[in-house]
Design a protein around this nucleic acid. Structure first.
Length: 813
DNA sequence: GCAAGGTC
């Protein structure tokens, strides 16, 4: 029997489509990557009995990047990124092993049906899947068609079955337009980002952003925020006058009347009207009208609408809202949260969804009433053909969800009650006043308004809008103020004003749509992919060169807000070249600057830096500094010069002394390394010589920290190694009074892994600052030797006893 | 270290 491989864009879709096509009779199992499932069933294809295998990818399989050597910022001129630098496709998410997975499932299949989302990105993924799978599929007979594309606009029985009955072919032009988009975004974004970052970080010390990024989506997003800022700044309040009359209504109640001219900006005219009204003692009703006010039923939630409401009503940022929605979805509380559709399909089981909420402590009564009295059809929305609007699927209370962010819902203000009156009724005029008021500036853009602007101008997609907003926050271009209003920082303002000054197109929201017009020509087959790509790159290359030549214009603005490198930071450690003090710049990215040599040395981020006892690196005479992630975390010394210019071939940029392979330096890995990390592949546990009296041994790659020998007064790494596991022995001295050693012993030498005396004195933990994902108990403890740093790590130890691992497992609890 | 687009 022949086999048909079918591939959807995400696991949830593979499941729904397989369910429809197999009429519910399928067998499913997880794929090798744990993320994708394979659903199998038998049926007919091309009038023959076949086995169907329906599976999925997880979005894009591949991503575009430059060849490795073009990713070295200090070796490549950003201008080269426009043409010379070659690009390559890499696996988008190596952990998912998607190519391997597709090949395992696709091997020996005869046909492939592509069920990717019916948009340009989906079309592009079709070809990524084909690139992976075609080489391992059975070869077709000559002339036989084996590759098919299913086109569907909703996940309903009829639509899916129709798509299966009318299979077409993947559209190469649409896929090419995405290839072009990827290449343009990469080349343009990286060139501008690298140039700006290097230029401004090389001049200023207090920018407070590790990266001065540029992108065709993030930059216009920032532009919107700064545009509002400029409006606020340039706002000139104007004085205006309003008339307000108070008349006496029934009983003792008085009624304030509004002026139908609303306001005037001329005091004399206002005065004239005031004089006219002052003569009148009575006010007469000229006409009455009644209007019914009704609030439109809310629109069903698609992703973008949900993000807007989450921001304005719940005070949740889009990134946070999306993460929360995903959790609620996987726990079954809401339907799939990524959808562009705001229209409920005709056959949607609205009552079923309502019934789920019938016992909810807050709205049970309302729900029951709706169920008995019937419900209105939801407001008609837009059907994008992907998933239904986001709908609650299960009743939940705060306790269940651990809610922390509850805000009162927006309510409709109650209308003030008016006295009933008819035409011709008169009221006596009480008082007429002329009020002087001033126009007020607009407020900063709310996140919800920004989302609307982005959507309107086609900046980003529902999935990427939260990412762009998050980006401009993380880069310190804007801050989120109360009411989730986005206030640009000095850096954000200067950047946008600089673009306006040099080339406004770089920041205008049209930058993306202009490019997209070109890309659409490729998609429609009206223009050649190479030509469009070449032409657009050429345009941006010129823009880039003009920008570089005109950067002084932006720099003039920078100068006003920021301080030059030489004037920032405080003296910390001595330069090995001129022996003068270098200044430590704490603002992001933290670094050392020698103003005499005009050199900058980057430092590890997110931690504290201190001088390390005025000790010097034997290789370059730079004073060592001590990096620490906090008192409960780990710390290690580093040489500022070696950290930026690795001294040995087997070292990389960004390595401290705990990874240095210097054979004799007292601070090096060679002298302080103990043995292989018990968790990560390549790490080595290194004694932290500064950690006493609460001694620590920390992995030089991952977050593993072993606390040991508390109150020991000296701990040294011995030159001898353990006979059993080859780890370096530790030589530990305790004070007489505090020694935990048996008898009156104060000194003991032994292996931290094997020595029974040390067993009680070592406790394994993760560094306090480690990623929450890695918190918890120690992970895998598979059989691996514990070679010391001075030997090549990773070699299994031939002399290791058989039950060694279980002994260790019991040891590190 | 960089973009934007998918998605887990």
């Amino acid at each position: 029997m022949k086999t048909v491989l079918m591939v959807a864009e995400k696991p949830s879709l593979a499941q729904s489509i397989a369910k429809i096509l197999s009429r519910g009779s399928m067998s499913s199992h997880k794929g090798l990557n744990g993320a994708c499932s394979v659903h199998e069933y038998t049926g007919t294809f091309d009038s023959q009995p076949v086995r169907f295998k329906m599976t999925s990818v997880c979005g894009h399989v591949m991503t575009l990047d430059f060849l490795g050597k073009y990713n070295k910022w200090d070796k490549v001129d950003p201008a080269e990124l426009f043409s010379q630098a070659p690009t390559e496709k890499k696996e988008a998410n190596p952990k998912l092993n998607m190519v391997k997975f597709l090949q395992v499932e696709g091997r020996g299949c005869d046909y492939i049906v592509l069920w990717l989302d019916c948009d340009k990105e989906g079309e592009n993924i079709c070809f990524e899947v084909l690139d992976a799978v075609l080489p391992v599929m059975n070869k077709a007979h000559s002339g036989e068609k084996t590759v098919f594309r299913a086109r569907f606009s909703s996940i309903t029985d009829t639509d899916i079955c129709n798509a299966m009955a009318r299979l077409g072919e993947p559209d190469h032009n649409e896929a090419l337009s995405v290839d072009a988009r990827q290449e343009l975004d990469l080349r343009i974004g990286c060139a501008f980002t690298r140039f700006q970052t290097k230029y401004f970080q090389g001049k200023y010390g207090d920018l407070d952003s590790s990266l001065i990024s540029f992108g065709p989506c993030q930059t216009p997003t920032l532009g919107f925020c700064v545009e509002r800022h400029d409006k606020i700044q340039s706002f000139k309040p104007e004085t205006y006058w309003v008339l307000q009359a108070k008349v006496n209504a029934d009983k003792d109640k008085s009624l304030l009347l509004d002026w139908d001219r609303v306001r005037v900006f001329d005091r004399e005219i206002a005065q004239m009207f005031l004089n006219m009204t002052k003569l009148e003692k009575e006010a007469q009703v000229e006409a009455t009208s009644r209007k019914e006010k009704a609030k439109q039923r809310p629109l069903a939630l698609n992703t973008v609408e949900m993000l807007r409401v989450a921001s304005s009503a719940l005070g949740m940022g889009p990134q946070h809202a999306m993460q929360t929605a995903e959790r609620l979805y996987t726990q079954g509380y809401i339907s799939y949260p990524r959808t562009e559709t705001t229209h409920y399909p005709e056959n949607f089981d609205l009552k079923g969804s309502l019934r789920q909420q019938a016992n909810h402590p807050y709205w049970a009564d309302t729900v029951k009433q709706l169920l008995t009295e019937g419900i209105n059809r939801p407001r008609k929305g837009h059907d994008a053909g992907d998933h239904p609007p986001i709908t609650p699927m299960r009743s939940a209370t705060e306790d269940e969800l651990g809610f922390t962010e509850i805000m009162p819902w927006q309510s409709v203000p109650l209308e003030e009650s008016l006295p009933t009156c008819q035409r011709g009724d008169t009221f006596t005029v009480g008082e007429v006043k002329m009020l002087e008021k001033q126009t007020s500036p607009p407020d900063y853009l709310t996140e919800a308004e920004l989302i609307t602007l982005m959507e309107k101008h086609g900046i980003g997609t529902d999935a990427s809008i939260p990412v762009h907003i998050n980006n401009i926050c993380q880069r310190n271009y804007v801050t989120v103020e109360s009411g989730r209003r986005l206030k640009p920082t000095n850096l954000g303002i200067v950047l946008v004003h600089g673009y306006y000054k040099i080339d406004a197109e770089l920041v205008l929201p049209t930058i993306r749509s202009a490019v997209e017009k070109q890309l659409n020509l490729i998609a429609q087959g009206k223009a050649d992919y190479r030509q469009v790509l070449g032409h657009t790159l050429d345009v941006f290359k010129r823009k880039f060169h003009y920008f570089v030549d005109s950067i002084a214009g932006m720099d003039e603005l920078m100068e006003v807000s920021f301080s030059p490198l030489a004037a920032t930071g405080k003296p910390l450690s001595r330069c090995g070249k001129c022996h003068r003090f270098m200044k430590y710049i704490q603002a992001k990215p933290s670094r050392l600057h020698c103003s005499h040599c005009d050199e900058t040395y980057t430092l590890p981020q997110n931690g504290t830096i201190k001088l390390y006892k005025e000790l010097r690196c034997p290789l370059d005479d730079f004073e060592l500094v001590l990096w620490s992630s906090g008192s409960r975390g780990k710390s290690y010394p580093l040489c500022p010069y070696c950290y930026n210019h690795p001294p040995f071939r087997d070292m990389k940029k960004g390595m401290g002394c705990n990874e240095c392979t210097h054979p004799t330096c007292q601070h090096s890995l060679s002298m302080l390394g103990i043995g292989q990390c018990i968790e990560c592949e390549s790490g080595i546990l290194v004694l932290d010589p500064t950690s006493g009296p609460k001694w620590k041994v920390a992995c030089n790659k991952c977050n593993v920290v072993a606390h040991c020998f508390e109150n020991a007064h000296r701990v040294r790494v011995s030159a001898d190694t353990c006979n059993t596991c080859e780890a370096a022995l530790l030589d530990v001295d305790f004070n007489k009074a505090k020694s935990p050693l048996p008898g009156d012993e104060t000194q003991h030498t032994g292996c931290v892994f094997c020595d029974p005396v040390f067993q009680e004195l070592v406790e394994l933990k993760h560094a306090a600052s480690c990623h929450p994902m890695h918190r918890g108990g120690p992970g895998r403890r598979q059989g691996r030797g514990r070679a010391r740093g001075r030997r090549p790590p990773g070699k299994p130890n031939p002399r290791r006893p058989k039950d060694k691992m279980s002994a260790l497992a019991a040891y590190f609890v």
